[in-house]
């Protein structure tokens, strides 16, 4: 069974923020104004979270590209009163915007605080609406949205593969953030495929899953060398 996952190598990540921009472009995420950003009203599906590792003076600042962990046992889907968020067969946690009633229970239940809410009608200043991706909907005001691992790309890849009468290749489907990453820090693929890079890296001794102790079984896995900070 396919189980899509992502490995982010923090030792490679330069914190350039290309993934954030690529995600906005790909998924029609409106760019928040400065004011909204400081109010915590930005809608970014992936953010760079600054984190200081270690104790002073042996500290190291890292930028964690922080996105939906695509948990295998997500706390958000249980609590949705209308079943607007769910985990599909291939492990992607989807959000059905048309079903969402905007109660924000899932956002409150998510331990990673990665789901976002449309506080207002999205605005597209200066003709930026022309860069909208037709494969991704424009979300309405008052609903919750989240990272979907660009699942529309999966649909498209499957469609192409089927039209060409072949199996899906691992390189056919890559989310926008992983595709753009100039440092090659983001590796995407099928965690259950024994031959895949993502499977190999997930077994790496540097691998770390966010708040593993909560039992959410995240499928976004970080790689981090810990020895340095201890020195």
């Amino acid at each position: 069974m396919t189980r899509w996952g992502m490995v982010i190598d923090l030792d490679r990540c330069t914190g350039c923020g290309a993934c954030v921009v690529a995600c906005r472009q790909e998924n029609n995420v409106p760019v928040a104004s400065e004011d909204d950003y400081y109010k915590g009203r930005n809608l970014d599906w992936i953010q760079l979270a600054r984190h200081v590792d270690g104790e002073y003076p042996n500290t190291q600042v890292r930028q964690y590209p922080f996105l939906c962990m695509q948990c295998d046992d997500p706390p958000c889907i249980k609590v949705c009163p209308v079943g607007a968020t769910y985990r599909d067969e291939e492990g992607i946690v989807g959000q059905i915007y048309y079903r969402c009633i905007g109660c924000r229970y899932c956002t409150s239940a998510c331990p990673y605080s990665v789901k976002v809410f449309n506080w207002k009608k999205p605005t597209w200043p200066d003709g930026t609406d022309r860069r909208q991706n037709p494969d991704v909907s424009i979300r309405s005001v008052g609903i919750v949205e989240k990272c979907t691992f660009c699942h529309h790309r999966r649909q498209r890849a499957k469609e192409v593969a089927r039209a060409e009468g072949r199996e899906l290749n691992p390189s056919d489907y890559v989310p926008a953030c992983a595709e753009i990453c100039p440092a090659g820090a983001m590796v995407f693929g099928d965690l259950d495929d024994k031959g895949s890079d993502v499977h190999r890296l997930a077994e790496d001794p540097r691998a770390l899953r966010m708040m593993e102790e909560l039992g959410t079984k995240p499928k976004v896995i970080y790689l981090k060398r810990v020895a340095e900070a201890k020195k």
Binding site: Y86, D88, E89, I92, G94, I96, Y97, Y98, D135, V136, S137, T148, H151, H152, Q155
Partner: peptide, 8 residues
Amino acid sequence: NDCTACHR
């Protein structure tokens, strides 16, 4: 019949 197959 997956939701996200049609709902974008």
